[in-house]
Design a protein around this nucleic acid. Sequence first.
DNA 1: TGTTATCTTTTATCCCGTAAAGAATTGTCC
DNA 2: GGACAATTCTTTACGGGATAAAAGATAACA
Lengths: 259, 259
Amino acid sequence: MVVFAGQGDARRSMALLWRSGEPDPEVRPGPKPGLSVDVIVEAAIEVADAEGMAALSMRKVGDRLGRTGMALYTYVPSKGELIDLMYDRVLAELPTRYDLGAGWRPAVVSWARHTLEFYLRHPWVLQVSQVRPVLGPNEFAMLEGVVAVLRDTGLTPRRVRGVMALLFDFVRGAAKTVSESRLAPSATGVSDEEWWQARSSLLKEVEPEFAARFPMASWVESQDDEPDDGPDDAHPGGETFSIGLNVLLDGIEAAVKAG
Amino acid sequence: MVVFAGQGDARRSMALLWRSGEPDPEVRPGPKPGLSVDVIVEAAIEVADAEGMAALSMRKVGDRLGRTGMALYTYVPSKGELIDLMYDRVLAELPTRYDLGAGWRPAVVSWARHTLEFYLRHPWVLQVSQVRPVLGPNEFAMLEGVVAVLRDTGLTPRRVRGVMALLFDFVRGAAKTVSESRLAPSATGVSDEEWWQARSSLLKEVEPEFAARFPMASWVESQDDEPDDGPDDAHPGGETFSIGLNVLLDGIEAAVKAG
DNA sequence: TGTTATCTTTTATCCCGTAAAGAATTGTCC
DNA sequence: GGACAATTCTTTACGGGATAAAAGATAACA
């Protein structure tokens, strides 16, 4: 399910994100609020981190706070807005600047690693729609970091936008691959290898001529003779991620040189 | 919501995908089947194409076929398997080979365009989990095409895997951006420009110091002085897509040269 | 004519988001 | 003190989802 930004009252939504609600009058009638937007967002993030976006429900968040699900509606207009708030909150974990002392290349690598690990910490973020950015303060703050790095290449804003899209797509895609491959087997109680083994034996069963019918697929899954070039990095995403990242960096370099 | 492959009976699921069900005895007691897996999958694809994955429900597909939602369970074990079948079915639209006469570069471009347009025709495909590939015949057939092109570069299987992941992430990301930006406003009845205008005026309202607080974000959104280099392609994805694709191709070229 | 296997609907269970109404709490004003 | 109003939170209810279980309908066999 793709989750869109709250389409409710856009003004209220922005006010929540930017905390620009008029500071309430100190003294008011009625019971003291037992919750706050902050604790609700926090609890919701805990649920999503632990059980994934699909398992996030208003009732569950309410439970975690000793309330009913409906109680949340006093603080937050809808689930959509809550997700926007979760999203922006969690984005605060990302750096807003990167060291450019050694040039843009290592800075991009650092950005990519941080961002990948961020997505792996909060895989549900990958389910939040990216097109209509939530436009919260932390999203912009985080963008400051990447843009500063890419600006350093000397590329025009237009090209930087293109490269940014590419970088984000790459890191998000990689994160999705890793996080889903972590999640899926645990849901079934089957390890990743077991799953693949079972699956590939089923494949043989169902299509005995596999190698002949799909020669390319067979080739690409084969092991290279080429030895590992240096010790394999123990980073999440592994080899595929580094290969992709290097290709990307070389592509950017070409764009830079082409001026 | 990320949709996983049906974790039910994996064997039955594979049999459905590969149509390797034992051909039923011709004559059997009981009413003639009024439906078939094929018509169900077709109807489901129509629903998903028209209204998106979120709107896909068993009842709705049943309705479209003049049945209840429950009737589908005679043919398909669960919604998850149905989605797998939809996915593999629709993948048959993609080419399984590309012309390498002019070298791998234009072939990759052709692949990217075809694939982008494919995702735009069936945006719901982007919601189907990619990690645990559905492993249907058309998925493999489609892979034959890309791998053949990338093998032509002379890269090792390991590197081809890395480049493939990168290419798919890029095209999927671009498709997501385009398709969501098409979908979202129509859901609200607000055009894309209106939405952005409303949003950016709200931004000014909520953070008057925007440009000072986020100088990089402001810079990257600014117009280049640089004139368009040649006529803009009228392709979906537009400029951002071509820029990204060229960067990518240059990156691959660098990898090829580094041998 | 059963009997039996099959297709389909009905019914029911348990989830979801959230609207509406009411209960409980706590302040202000008289 | 009491009335009133504002606010928090719960209860109840609605429409929708996937799907299990049971019941109804249909068509071939003995």
